[in-house]
Design a protein around this nucleic acid. Sequence first.
DNA 1: ATCGATTATTTTGTACGACAAATATCCGCA
DNA 2: TGCGGATATTTGTCGTACAAAATAATCGAT
Lengths: 241, 241
Amino acid sequence: MVKPGVARSLHHQVIHELGRSIVSGELAPGKSLPRTDILAECMNVSRAALREAMKVLSAKGLIESRQKTGTRVREEIHWNQLDADVLAWRCASMPTEGFIDNLVEMREIIEPAAAVNAARRRTDAQLEAIEIAYRAMAAAGDIEAWTVADMAFHEAVLQATNNELLTSLFWVIETALSSYFVLSASHSANFRNALPQHFKVYEAIRRRKPEVARQAMNELVSDSRSNIKSEQMACGAAFHS
Amino acid sequence: MVKPGVARSLHHQVIHELGRSIVSGELAPGKSLPRTDILAECMNVSRAALREAMKVLSAKGLIESRQKTGTRVREEIHWNQLDADVLAWRCASMPTEGFIDNLVEMREIIEPAAAVNAARRRTDAQLEAIEIAYRAMAAAGDIEAWTVADMAFHEAVLQATNNELLTSLFWVIETALSSYFVLSASHSANFRNALPQHFKVYEAIRRRKPEVARQAMNELVSDSRSNIKSEQMACGAAFHS
DNA sequence: ATCGATTATTTTGTACGACAAATATCCGCA
DNA sequence: TGCGGATATTTGTCGTACAAAATAATCGAT
């Protein structure tokens, strides 16, 4: 997961091609892939390049190779659901709306928890990073600048938790979500509505009040959820027109 | 991440060897690896096998290869922290106690959130699975049986959230944690103390009371944390004796 | 005729060697 | 001194050949 969209090296292309096919359900679990030499010829790559791609997919839990038996697609249970590529392939393949809900749900779990820990353990430097991001939000004139600053704010809060795992999870989820909502034009008029709520979060973290921070962040992501919901409905309406 | 410990195929061995070296800090970020042919000879494998391993490590975000420049270890920020292998390597390499705290913290975030969603969305079949696990805990005579049933209980709760991402995250964290605490002999006398608390969780999920479930699960993992803390201290004491 | 061990076959795993592509470095030139 | 192209170095890709493993078939013995 380096360059989204089009891959540059050959085996990257193969990884994406096969990965997308599997995650989208085109290649159903349990199904056997052709022999490596056949498949390689079929995709116009060498067996070596194909194998390199298959090792990666294997590491992501998507396929399993055994001698004589061949290579087969593994059950969804074994997939590395939190892998950035797997998530991206899911997002790219018209997922069920339930999956998007799951993503949103993850954010709603992560962010308040992050606010708690940031309020507990933030350093002064980390607080300053949050404050800078907040000021950038307050100063933002258009929605572009505001989106960037908003992202920086949430990133700074996550950083302040001093928990790499939580930060990593946040990025994975956020990247997946951002592939849906380009968070641009829509409600460009009232984008500043969330500013006071952000201040509450900042203030709670500054004053080292974990529970206050949790509550503030909770309201923030809840508002965000309802925004997404309405946006989703609008999008769906446009889609079916 | 299929077989923990010793790998069977050659490139699996290479993956583990290099992965462990990197995550443990033996190979510092920014450092360049030898040329592929040199490194291959050095490890007594073919260049093809080495490359397959490197592609996997590259997919995990541990290394980055570019033509002419060579291959170098990437900054910790880019690592897939939630990858099962990366976590396992971390756990295996005498991690800082802060990292274990991070793992525990993740569990404390995940489980109460899972209880909430289980209480909201569980099906009758999922509730039954939780009940069966609870009864197995109640009937457990020794700590072995209790540990198995306990795991089944928590797994059932996670399943009841109907959120694959959350379930996947739970497994990753739990697997990493279990590599530390073999949860065996210690406090074998009072292992049943947590039973009533588990019942509260079950009951809240049965009655579809999200907030009650959260609170109950919260207390459960808090107790677990203090147990781990004491165990850790005992372990550390034994270690320095 | 059935069971068991042995052999055959198929598929991935590993190895080696050669060339293509990219790119940092160096050198010559204006 | 600055610039552009030649050059060298390193990964990327390819083809072939053989090894290892695991299933399927075969043969023999009871």
